[in-house]
């Protein structure tokens, strides 16, 4: 990758020894991850899928009578620096009508840490809130 004449906002934006390609640790990321908290009121389960080179997140919300399927949404992958082939985290977004949910996740020592930023759009006066929970691969 040519590193001259690149726009940058901080020096870590431009330092790179080789072109970044995803895939080194895709197998670690892909698959089904289960919330380790059996009493959760948040996301009970996520799947990370690869389809024709694109990555998708599929979340299931915990509800009284089981799970609510949120469907699949595109998932953007991130490494820990501009030259690293190792996937460090991901980001995805759900628009469920009454609520917009931004999801960011990262994996450390086999634990997927998922944070959700929930913004209500229905004028219900509910506070927007964040949640942070832990998932392990099934």
């Amino acid at each position: 990758m040519q590193t001259t004449n690149l726009a940058y906002s901080k020096k870590d934006d431009i330092i790179s020894e080789f072109y970044h390609e995803w895939g080194t640790n895709m197998e670690t990321l892909l698959g089904e991850w289960k919330n380790v908290n059996p009493k959760t009121g948040q996301i009970s389960r996520v799947e990370i899928l690869s389809k024709e080179g694109d990555t998708f997140l599929h979340c299931h919300g915990k509800v009284d009578d089981g799970e609510q399927d949120w469907g699949e949404t595109p998932c953007e992958l991130f490494s820990d620096n501009v030259g690293s082939p190792t996937i460090e985290g991901f980001m995805a977004s759900y628009n469920l009508g009454f609520v917009q949910i931004e999801i960011v996740g990262n994996i450390k020592y086999g634990v997927m840490v998922v944070q959700s930023y929930n913004t209500f759009k229905d004028g219900s006066n509910r506070n927007n809130y964040i949640a942070r929970e832990f998932f392990c691969k099934k």
Partner: peptide
């Protein structure tokens, strides 16, 4: 070995 153990949201 001294182990300090805590629980957080199922972990």
């Amino acid at each position: 070995a001294f182990l300090a153990i805590n629980e957080n949201k199922g972990l």
